[in-house]
Amino acid sequence: MKPISQSTFLLEIGDLYLFSLRFFKEVFKPRYEFAELIKQCFYIGYKTVPLVAITGFIMGLVITIQSHPSMEAFGAESWLPSVVSVSLVREIVPVITALICAGKIGSSIGAEIGSMSVSEQINAMEVSGANPFKYLVVTRVIASMLMVPLLVVISDTIGLYGAFLGVNMKQVISFHLFTNQVFLKLTFQDIIPSIIKSFFFGFAIGIIGCFKGYNTKNGTRGVGSTANSAVVASIFAVFVIDLMAAQIADILHLN
């Protein structure tokens, strides 16, 4: 892959900004592509559930196992469910889920739209009377914005169950007591910001995948590099949004 110069990078940021503006212009205009939106929700959401569920479970389990010795050293084993749940819900699960989505959804959107672009399918849609931006971009970005938070909630739930099993590996604790200890510290101030930021993660993953796909050049070789750059740019965007979310939450005293 060719190294990207500073001016190319800035130009691409500018083009992405214009592409996003077009998204906000088109999203409210009829005609609404509900059938395609539901289809995309199925592909982006339902088809990603197993992957994020397993990852969430492993994250919950691993964080608990690794935190246990430190908590035990401080004599704070009883705090383990609270500490693990807060770190899972606030940071680990949203970010890990977004990274998985960036890999799975970002690359598939980029490659799909990219191959449609190089094989003139996007032009064919336009000639057929459709608005390809609405049909392809708006539906995928909205589906991504709706499904990523949902996947985060699913992954949170399964991650907490993983944490419950992790706690039970070294001590015996009932599910009822575990839940009580979790919700002793975990409040809506932790849950809501994490869901809000995952909307933005979903938007970034969807819009970057579509932008890269829509601007694919150089035939099938271009499709490969589109999928690659869509993933890299989405992952980068997830971390930037996460940093901004942390700063905003701090300013609003939500930490």
Binding site: E112, S115, M116, S119, E120, Q121, A124, V127
Partner: peptide, 12 residues
């Protein structure tokens, strides 16, 4: 009507 060189049939 427009017939594309690559046919441009929708794969999906």
């Amino acid at each position: 009507g427009f017939l594309f060189q690559s046919n441009a049939l929708y794969d999906s």
